[in-house]
Design a protein around this nucleic acid. Sequence first.
DNA 1: CGGGTGACTATAA
DNA 2: TTTATAGCCACCC
Length: 104
Amino acid sequence: MADNPAYEMIWQVVGAIPPGSVATYGQVAELAGLPRGARLVGRCLGNLPAGSRLPWHRVINSAGRISLPPESESYREQVKRLQEEGVAVFNGRVKLRQFRWTGD
DNA sequence: CGGGTGACTATAA
DNA sequence: TTTATAGCCACCC
């Protein structure tokens, strides 16, 4: 687990994003109680252990784009998973960005 | 303690 | 629409 309690909040919020939907780093941070913690969310996801079941692929940046280097393996993984959930992605840009929130 | 870094954002041009 | 700038904050030298 994390030493930083904020990480657990982030994990909880990210894990609550329903399939077929996406949220921005800033949105996740705010819901986690970290109004300016967008970068922390990015750091947190970057620290995720391989094999984590957290749906990190549902988190994108405020421009509605995937925030990973297009040539990276993680990028392809994210696009693949999103498309499998029915989220349209075109050249790194996510269409249908319905920030559905079931409210926890 | 200081400086650099980055899966971020908002704003301006 | 794109690029440039400036804030942001935990983490790592």
